[in-house]
Design a protein around this nucleic acid. Structure first.
Lengths: 216, 216
DNA sequence: TTGGAAGTTGACATTTTGGTCAGGTTCTTC
DNA sequence: GAAGAACCTGACCAAAATGTCAACTTCCAA
C-alpha cells in the first residue's frame, strides 16, 4: 500500500527513466526556441517539433508554457556563476582575469543558445527570475567583487569599481555569442570562427588588464 | 480656399498630414512593444492599444506585422552611427573616445526601447536586416576603425585591434540599457539612476583608455 | 459646392494557438 | 502474468490572433 510511491522509482536508476530523458530533451529544445523567440513568441508546437515529440507529449511533462520557461531558467542558473570560480583572492589577478575571460567567451561560443536565452530574459525585464535567484546572483557578485577590491587594496590592481569592472567583462564576453551577427558584420565575416573568439579574448584581456594596471 | 489649407494643420506640407502623424505614432508604439516581445511575440492589437488607434486603422497604414517591423528597423538605422561622428582623425583619442562612450551611454539610457529592439533583432539572428543595411554598417565600422588605426600608427595609442576595440565599447555601453535588470542587480539597486550611468561612463573610459595607453 | 481622395472603424472570416482528454501502449513490480 | 503506474498521442475545443471589408466621416482642391 504505502509502498506504491516509495517502491516505484521507475527503473533502478531514476536518471534512466524515460521521463527523465524526455524532460531533458524538451528542456534542451525549449532553450533553443526561447532563445530565438522569447516566451510570447514561442509556440509549443515548435518546441515539440524541435525535439521530435508530439505536442501532447510535451504537455504530459509540463502543464503550461510558463512552466517550461521557468524550468529552463532554473536549469541555466545552475551554471551561471561557474566562471566566477576563477576569481579567488590567492590567485594573481592577471592570470585569474585572463582565465575568467577565456571561460566566459568559451561558454558564449559553445552554449550560444543558453547564453541568448538569458540575454533575452534580461532584455524583457527579467520578470521570471525569482527574488531568490536574484539574491543568489547578487551574493555571488558581491563575493567576487570583494576579491577584486582586495586586489586593489593590496596594490595588485589600479583602483577600479569592481562591480562596473565585472559588468564590463560580462558585456564584452557575452557580446560575441549573443550578438554574433553584429560582431561578425563588424569584422566583415559571414560568421565567427574560433579564431575570432581567440582574437577577442586577446583584445579584451589586453585592454582590461592594462587598463587596470595589472600589466606584468 | 488657399488660405484655409495653408493655415490648417493638415495643409500642403506632407509631414503635417494626418497619415504621416499616424504612421509616426504607430512606429513609435511598435518600437516599444517589439523591444519587449520581439516580432513573433508582438500582437498587433497591443501596438494599436499602445498608440490609441483601432486595430483596423493600423492595418490601414501597414498591411502586415512584418511591414511594421521592417519600417521600424529602417527608422532606427538612421541614427545608428550617430555617436561615431565623434571619432575623427583630427581629435585627441582620449577626448574623442570619452565623448563617444558618453554619447553611447546616453543613447542607451534615453532611448532604451530603440536600443533593446535592436538588441532583440541581433539576438534573433538579424534576419530582417537587408544586405544593404549590413553593408552600410560595415562601411561605417571600417571607416572609424581606420581612424583608430591611424591613432595607433601615430603613436597616440597602444596597438589594439580597432574592430574588437569598438565591439568592446558597444558591448559595455549597450549593456546598461539593454540588460538593465542584470546591471541593477549587480549594483544591488532596484533600478539604475543617472548617477549609475555616470559611474559606468567613468569606469569604462578609465579602463579602456588606460588599457590602450591613452592616459594623459 | 462638390467630387474624389484620405482616413476611420465595427464587424467579420479564417487560421493559429494553448491546452484537454479519452483511450491506448509499455514498463515495473510482485 | 497480472495489476497498476508511467507513458504516449490523435483528435478535439475554446480562445486568441491576423487580416479583410464595406460603409462611413473628414479633408481638400478647384
Amino acid at each position: 500500500m504505502a509502498g506504491q510511491k516509495a517502491a516505484r522509482p521507475g527503473g533502478k536508476n531514476p536518471e534512466d527513466r524515460v521521463g527523465a530523458r524526455n524532460r531533458e530533451k524538451i528542456l534542451r529544445a525549449a532553450v533553443d526556441v526561447f532563445a530565438r523567440k522569447g516566451l510570447d513568441g514561442t509556440r509549443i508546437q515548435e518546441i515539440a517539433d524541435h525535439c521530435g515529440l508530439p505536442k501532447a507529449n510535451v504537455y504530459y511533462y509540463f502543464s503550461t508554457k510558463q512552466e517550461i520557461y521557468t524550468h529552463v531558467i532554473e536549469h541555466l542558473l545552475t551554471g551561471w556563476d561557474k566562471a566566477f570560480e576563477h576569481i579567488t583572492p590567492d590567485r594573481d589577478p592577471r592570470e585569474a582575469i585572463a582565465v575568467y575571460v577565456r571561460a566566459k567567451l568559451d561558454y558564449s561560443r559553445k552554449h550560444a543558445a543558453e547564453s541568448r536565452f538569458f540575454a533575452n530574459e534580461m532584455l524583457r525585464g527579467a520578470h521570471f527570475l525569482s527574488k531568490q535567484q536574484k539574491l543568489h546572483m547578487q551574493r555571488v557578485t558581491r563575493e567576487r567583487s570583494a576579491v577584486v577590491e582586495g586586489w586593489v587594496r593590496d596594490g595588485k590592481m589600479a583602483p577600479v569599481d569592481a562591480r562596473h569592472f565585472f559588468i564590463m567583462l560580462w558585456a564584452a564576453t557575452q557580446f560575441y555569442g549573443d550578438f554574433e551577427p553584429l560582431a561578425a558584420n563588424a569584422l566583415e565575416k559571414s560568421k565567427l570562427a574560433k579564431a575570432d573568439y581567440d582574437a577577442a579574448a586577446a583584445a579584451i584581456t589586453t585592454i582590461v588588464l592594462d587598463g587596470c594596471g595589472v600589466s606584468a
